[in-house]
């Protein structure tokens, strides 16, 4: 039994302690956002946040995660009420096949939570580990920039429609 906190909810999971988090998220908790891409920490499609840091869930055994706060793309909002990062990716149409996108969003979330005003250069450097094969990179960068703006507006208590949606 492993105790995990995912998107603010506590779970008791029946899994071998060496099981990578990715398989627990997908197979036990039915959170499909994080994707298997390489199992080697080389592509980033499995990226989630642990205590605010971007982590490759495919190479992180659950035994290391007890008592830590895990956030997946499902924790950023819902299809009915998308969070700022999700809203920004929809508005920028930042996907082709979309398989890498949840990992991209979670890595970007880790940066913007610390610094929603991150510069273009900071965003590019931060996103370097994640791979996209469709060539959606420019739209992903634009979406991250937009998400930062939405987060800043939300934090500033702006009352515009966009900010309300973002909140």
């Amino acid at each position: 039994m492993v105790a995990l906190t995912v998107n603010g909810q506590s779970h008791q999971i029946e899994a071998d302690p060496d099981t990578p988090l990715l398989y627990v998220l997908r197979d036990e908790l039915h959170l499909h956002g994080a994707k298997y891409g390489c199992g080697l920490g080389q592509c980033g499609s499995c990226t989630v946040m642990v205590d605010g840091q971007a982590v490759f869930s495919c190479v992180t055994p659950v035994l290391l995660l007890e008592g830590r706060e895990i956030t997946t793309v499902e924790g950023l909002g819902t299809i009915e009420s998308p969070g700022p990062m999700q809203q920004a990716f929809i508005e920028e149409q930042a996907a082709q096949c979309g398989y890498c996108i949840p990992g991209m969003m979670m890595r970007a979330q880790a940066l913007l939570q610390r610094n929603p005003g991150a510069s273009d250069e900071e965003i590019v450097a931060h996103m370097e580990p994640n791979l996209c094969r469709c060539g959606t990179h420019m739209r992903i960068l634009a979406a991250i920039k937009r998400a930062g703006g939405l987060m800043q507006m939300a934090a500033g208590g702006s009352t515009t429609d966009t900010a309300k949606r973002a909140g």
Partner: peptide, 21 residues
């Protein structure tokens, strides 16, 4: 036209054969 599949894909809805269960 905004793509019909993107909202599900960015919110973790089962979108791929990989997600069938």
């Amino acid at each position: 036209q905004k793509r019909i599949d993107i909202p599900g894909k960015v919110t973790g809805a089962p979108a791929y054969v990989q997600d069938m269960r």
